[in-house]
Computed example of a mutant assay.
Amino acid sequence: MTFVLVVDDDPAMQRTLNINLRARDYEVETAGDGRSALQIVDERMPDVVLLDLGLPDLDGIAVLRQLRSFTQVPVIVVSARTESDDKVEALDLGADDFITKPFSIDELMARIRATTRRAGHDEPDLVIEADGLRLDFADSRATRDGEDIHLTPIEWRIVEVLARRRGRLVRQVELLTAVWGPAYDTQTNYLRVHMASIRRKLEVDSGRPVLFLTEPGMGYRFITR
């Protein structure tokens, strides 16, 4: 049974999610503030966290930052905040998805299913070496000629999706859905920004990429020779 931790200070929202999740055979625990949520995660790791940003003690972003310091548990941000800066910050810190209140329960359930499916899909450890670059996905470690290169959680996810399908075209919509979730399948600007950063970090010459190639209007390929 999938264990969902609901982190929200609104009792009505807690009650609504609790009822609807339990009706669909999820195990549910609720927390009304960030510190309680972190304590629950410390005591028993959930399968997915539904995290509100507007909490009374720690801001949801601070909770997410602390979670990502010790776990990759799937996190879906559930928030009334609609500013793109909040979404980008949460996703860059490692949130798996972002859904804005008000939302339909059916949409939320679909997001939960997609997120837990991705998290539960067992894939073999992957290490790639090319042009002095080494990518170790099990350890989330990138190096060039022995020097560490820092990638954000989002950058790692983009690189891993491309690396696991190396040589093949990964269409923009596939990449957006795999990294951010189905609600972001038209946000191609996200890919442009993050791919530029990935190339600056991982290509020898970011102006003349040989590893991360763009197929204009279609998607991207990761090529190793």
Rank of each mutant, 00 (worst) to 15 (best):
M109I: 10
A80C: 09
E83L: 11
D96T: 12
E83M: 10
L108F: 01
S69D: 11
G120T: 08
S140Q: 15
A90S: 12
A110T: 12
A114H: 13
P153Q: 09
E155Y: 00
F98N: 08
P102F: 07
E129S: 14
A95I: 05
V75Y: 00
I149D: 03
P74C: 03
R117T: 10
V161G: 02
H121C: 12
S79Y: 01
D96C: 11
Q66T: 14
P74G: 04
L93C: 05
I61C: 08
E123G: 07
Q72V: 04
L151M: 09
D106L: 14
I99H: 02
I112L: 11
L64C: 05
A119T: 10
H150M: 12
R68K: 09
R81S: 14
E129W: 05
L108S: 06
L108Q: 09
D106R: 02
M109K: 06
V75T: 02
T82I: 01
I105S: 10
V78I: 11
V88N: 05
R144K: 11
Q72C: 04
R134L: 12
S84K: 10
I112F: 06
V75R: 03
L93E: 04
H150N: 11
L151S: 01
K87R: 15
L126R: 06
R117W: 00
L133Y: 02
D106M: 10
E107P: 03
A80K: 05
R157H: 12
V159W: 05
R81P: 07
E107I: 11
E83F: 03
F98D: 07
L133C: 07
I112C: 06
L108G: 06
Q66A: 12
A95H: 03
E123H: 15
R113L: 15
H150Q: 13
E147F: 04
I76P: 08
P74N: 05
D106S: 11
D148R: 13
T116G: 04
L135V: 06
D97S: 10
E83I: 01
A90M: 02
R65L: 00
E129P: 01
D92S: 12
T71C: 05
A119R: 13
G94W: 00
Q66V: 13
A80Y: 00
V63E: 01
T152R: 02
K87I: 03
S69K: 11
T152G: 04
I149E: 02
S104Y: 06
H150R: 13
P74E: 01
T143V: 08
T152E: 04
L67H: 02
L64G: 04
T100F: 00
R141S: 09
I149N: 03
R113N: 10
S84L: 13
H150T: 14
D59Q: 06
V159A: 10
R111E: 06
L64I: 01
V159I: 13
D136N: 13
A62V: 13
D122P: 00
F103P: 11
D106C: 04
R134T: 12
A119G: 11
T100C: 08
F137G: 03
T71Q: 02
